[in-house]
Simulated assay, not measured.
Amino acid sequence: MKLKKIFSVLMLSSCFANAGAQQVFKISQFTQHNYLFNPAAAGANDIASVGVTYRKMWSGITGGPQTVLLFADKYFAKKNTGVGFFLYDDKTGPTSRTGGELNLSYSVKLGSDSKRLMLGLAGEVLQYKIDKAAMQNYIPDDPLLASSGSTIKGDAAAGIYYKSPTLNLGVSIKNILQSKLEFIKGSTNPSGKLYRHYYFMGSYNWKVDEDNVIVPNALVQYLPNAPVDVQAGVRLEHKDLLWVGGNYTYKQSYSLFAGVKINHKLAIGYGYDQYNTPLSIFDNGGDAHEIMIRYFFLK
């Protein structure tokens, strides 16, 4: 791919939101971080934890998407309440999104503590920035270059999550308010907005013996004017000591990942993705690497 073509791909996928591009970061091991996409899942793990994830996509080209996440959550059993938050920095080409989200969930117990219906709300604040200097040579006459190149917006999310020892299901909406970015104040030209993202998630814990659990899982994402994103896969967990698995994203990529948990408290994981579109291995850029470190506060 020539530089200008690569730049165009990055611009279209990250800057002009009214084209229907995905605006929320993506990670491979989504079943271990459900509350990043569904606020109702805050505290669903029951054990308080804090962690960090770094992900770099299309690593063979300059300006490929990269995401840094700092996250934590805790469940307060006496109050039937879960709290979660995450901070993120998400960059693609000349654009970046930096922000944070606070998640609150309330659980309705369904006969026992192990089964509950969780309802969640979240508030988000983000700064959307454009590196005008990086765009100058490609769109020198664009009115966007006369703007500040930065805007701060707020938005909200909501969700429902069913938790049990075996079956876990959830549905959520992010960017409910669809806040307008308005880089160019007072302009009649569209300047983009945050589009609603709809998520449907599910997983099943199949305990095959005393030491091993197989977890088939799926995540479906929908937003207007864009293809439906369907991810599905399976993860094998052994004695709460290690895990290994893989996912497939329909007509886009496959993922392989593995991790270990030290003393049942410190988890370290790595994921690798290989993309078929919009870049592939033949473009020397169609892969992604993801590293996760998470600490569980066990007594």
Results as ranks from 00 to 15, higher is better:
Met1Ser: 15
Lys5Ala: 13
Phe7Leu: 11
Phe7Tyr: 15
Ser8Glu: 13
Ser14Ala: 07
Cys15Ser: 11
Ala21Val: 10
Lys26Asp: 15
Ile27Tyr: 14
Ser28Asn: 12
Thr31Ala: 14
Tyr35Thr: 01
Asn38Val: 00
Pro39Thr: 09
Ala42Phe: 10
Ser49Val: 00
Ser49Tyr: 14
Val52Arg: 11
Arg55Phe: 13
Lys56Asp: 09
Ile61Lys: 04
Pro65Arg: 01
Thr67Gly: 06
Val68Arg: 12
Leu69Ile: 07
Ala72Pro: 00
Ala77Ser: 14
Ala77Lys: 13
Thr81Ile: 15
Thr81Ser: 12
Val83Met: 12
Gly84Ala: 03
Asp90Ile: 03
Thr95Ile: 08
Ser105Trp: 07
Val108Ile: 15
Arg116Thr: 00
Leu117Trp: 07
Ala122Cys: 10
Val125Gln: 10
Gln127Gly: 08
Ile130Glu: 02
Ile130Trp: 05
Ile130Gly: 00
Asp131Tyr: 02
Ala133Pro: 03
Asp141Asn: 15
Leu145Val: 06
Gly149Trp: 05
Asn168Phe: 07
Gly170Tyr: 10
Lys180Tyr: 01
Leu181Glu: 03
Ser187Glu: 06
Gly192Val: 05
Tyr204Leu: 14
Lys207Gln: 08
Val208Gln: 06
Asn217His: 15
Gln221Glu: 15
Tyr222His: 12
Leu223Met: 12
Asp229Lys: 10
Val230Phe: 15
Glu237Gln: 12
Lys239His: 04
Leu241Met: 15
Leu241Trp: 08
Trp243Asn: 14
Asn247Lys: 06
Tyr254Lys: 07
Ala258Gln: 10
Gly259Gln: 03
Lys261Ile: 02
His264Val: 10
Leu266Asn: 05
Asp273Cys: 07
Asn276Ala: 12
Gly286Arg: 03
Glu290Gly: 05
Ile293Met: 10
Arg294Ser: 05
Tyr295Glu: 04
Leu298Trp: 10
